[in-house]
Design a protein around this nucleic acid. Sequence first.
RNA 1: GGCCCGUUCGUCUAGGGGUUAGGACAUCAGAUUUUCAUUCUGGUAACAGGGGUUCGAUUCCCCUACGGGCUACCA
Length: 511
Amino acid sequence: MKDVRVRFAPSPTGALHIGGVRTALYNFLLARQQGGTMILRIEDTDQNRYVPGAEEYIMDSLAWAGIQIDEGVREGGPFGPYRQSERKEIYSQYAQQLLQSGHAYYAFDTEADLEAMRERQKATGSDQQQYSSATRMTMRNSLTLSAEETRKLIETGHPYVIRFKIPENETVVLHDLIRGEVSVQTAQLDDKVLMKSDGMPTYHLANVVDDYLMKISHVIRGEEWLPSAPLHVLLYKAFGWGKDMPQFAHLPLLLKPDGNGKLSKRDADRMGFPIFPLNWTDPNTKEQSTGYREAGYLPEALINFLAFLGWNPGTEQEIFSMNELIQAFSVERIGKAGAKFDIQKAQWYNQQYLRAKSNTELATHLVDHLKKENITCSQDKAEKICDVMKERITFPQDLWEQGKFFFNAPASFDDGVVSKKWNDDAVKVLTTYRDAVEKLSTFDAAIAKETLEQVTASLQIGTGKILQALRVALSGMGGGPDLMMIMEIIGKEEVVSRLTFALNNLKIKVG
RNA sequence: GGCCCGUUCGUCUAGGGGUUAGGACAUCAGAUUUUCAUUCUGGUAACAGGGGUUCGAUUCCCCUACGGGCUACCA
């Protein structure tokens, strides 16, 4: 079997969209599974849309996600350059080949000429207003002009494009790995521009030439390319590369969570979830976007989630590491229909991966975060906190968000809990308890519990009745991890001082 | 408009001519828990519609509806 060589070919027109990450992922999975090569090709043939920094951003994003590139701008490789703007000469050379073999022609039409043609077509009631076999003989091109005229126009510097001459009355059949056979009549296709007047190729030419030269075996890309795939097939044939044509797989799109249509940045902003892998500041608008990384998503969770959007292994296993995905992946099991983007599922995955992490690893994260808050915390204490908190968090930052009380005494107390649970009995027990704790020489969760039980027993008040009051006094909140562990972690002195503060400041609410 | 692609619980999906149509997320209920969360148990919930083919269709075919993509000297 032919060596598997796949490519992810984004254009650097902005941050990498999450859908692009999935496309890259599927390419990567196939490459790794088959012992093939993953190529990153930068498709920067549109000079107007070039956004500085986008290229770096794309590479950094893929690296973060764990999608490794074997050949590309950074990595180099035997088929470079991997930036299309640096391959300009190659494309014009191949365009010449098409010109000579009669598969392409020069066109000198102006914007106004094209517009007039479309109007004429519209007036005849035609379904399509295209530059095609139906209209090309009415236009200003090397098909209608003499060789002499054509040569003169080019020599005198008239702007021109090179168009592909779509063959007439053919049926193009392409075999898509996901969709099966797709066939299109060439009469539906237009004479696409291959080389633009600025000397750059269009996507269609560049993509076919590069895929051929780079020996790409599988083209795995978004469904938006399906309509132009027949044109690409025709191009391969025109070049005489029919036998070396890659296999195609057109991926279903990622749809917005509500309603219909493809997932856009607007939807993500509106619903409050990231659309880009990493933080991104648009250099033109200065608009800032939070990335998945910064929002607290773990790359392995994002990857697992993305992999399952449009693909599944056919088993009931939900959690897959990258290596497991590589093992299990198959293009044939990719679905055909678009998948709505469900951020809740992504959060669930994140939770699963987060809780699978060791306390040591989580603690390191916590300690790092605490530095930003100017709080010092031993690794040992941080590990204890992570141990009691990890079952209740979705994002790493929740460790701090939900566990602030481990470091800062509560400044305010949950009203609902106070009004319900802060009563005479509670005050009585907590006062006695505070005094008892103060006298203790050693203190840990077990001792804290034993002492509390002794106090409630002596006062003949059920322990359960006052636990919520104790919790709110210590943490300010009505919920949280095991109270005895909280006391052990914050320590005896802190327990005493927090109780004293609460006892002095909380009023019993009557009624 | 034209062309192409698609359609199983709210969502991601498995399945496939005869199944109690399976799982996961979400949701609801119960249990556990000192609270919240977790965990456990259970529940609600789907084959877009109409025609065929067939003994039988959700599964195969056609049509319709709906949805999406494309329709640039953008990718």
